[in-house]
Nucleic acid binder design. Sequence first.
DNA 1: GTCTATACGGTGATAGAC
DNA 2: GTCTATCACCGTATAGAC
Lengths: 203, 203
Amino acid sequence: MVSARRQQILEAALEVFAERGFKGTSIDAVAERAGLTRQGVLHYFPSKKRLLLDLLAFREELAREHLAGRRLGEDWAGDFAEAVAFEVHHPSLATVQTVVLAEAVTGQEPACGYVRERSRSLQEHLTAHLIERYGDRLPSGLDPRTAAAAVLALIEGVHQLWLVDQDAERYPRIVHEALSVLLGTDSAPEPHLPQPQLPLTNG
Amino acid sequence: MVSARRQQILEAALEVFAERGFKGTSIDAVAERAGLTRQGVLHYFPSKKRLLLDLLAFREELAREHLAGRRLGEDWAGDFAEAVAFEVHHPSLATVQTVVLAEAVTGQEPACGYVRERSRSLQEHLTAHLIERYGDRLPSGLDPRTAAAAVLALIEGVHQLWLVDQDAERYPRIVHEALSVLLGTDSAPEPHLPQPQLPLTNG
DNA sequence: GTCTATACGGTGATAGAC
DNA sequence: GTCTATCACCGTATAGAC
């Protein structure tokens, strides 16, 4: 499905889009980084717009692959923390997402449709999963729809905080702890246990 | 401090930057919307970069003015919900923030320094205030530094969610409820009042 | 001081010709 | 593929009107 050439171009595009945004990127720049000509890129991706959309799909696929071994939904806080940890080690993925989002809020194609649909879809699915798991009220007291929005907002915001933070490595843990509280799955918030079961590398 | 002319230019710049980003905006476009020439704009703001930085300061000042009547820190969740409610009714403010942030994560000036410093400063101040108020452990069980990062991430993420959401009006309430849980100041997850005390004009 | 009008040098992206 | 024409923009003048 994804030829080596295609993937090579997608990886080059990922870097260039992350560095210079969509508007700021020329197909020539992607071609140069991938080691071929503009015509070569256009052979695989008929337009810059299509290249970006395929790149976003590629990005989601990478993230999904990384979570493939987990049993999603048993430990939401852990799932999202793991996803964030993955992105922390692949800054281009988060950067391109942020860049596309910014172009979406200005109403520009092609990002606009993608971001709106993705946001709506994620909220809807997460809400449904939370209802299935907890009913109409989470252990934290939040209703599932509110919690889903808050969780996604936290994840999106974390993307941007760690991108400009010296110490990006602490964000997976932040996500894990904050989501545990938000959902109410916090097993031990009490001062009696100094050693939580999380892989805290230190404080 | 801010002449009428300056403010007029800033408001025009706010709209144009929000619509087209920093790179995509020409001084001519700002000048045209403000009703003068490029030279007129450059008379007040010696460069495009400076125009953006002053615009960001202007944006913060607007937000601060809007919260001037509150006794900040007594009710953090309410404070932030109010701030979000304000921005929901001024989409250009949130949009320009998002756009600038995206340009910052690609390492581009002038946004980069501003965003990094603002993020660091906000986290530091909020952490200090939380420690002063709650000590080294919030009622939710989170430590103040983690909570501060989570709160700011939630706020940043909410900016972007509501910008692409049909129903932006629900986000102030989401922020209020989610922050109450995150901080542990959740007094009563009451199902009885769908009408918070915020000045939501409604939709 | 607050602008307008005009113009110049420099840049970076784009498009066409060779 | 390189070279060149073109374009849009930034920033910096200058001169002058109110």
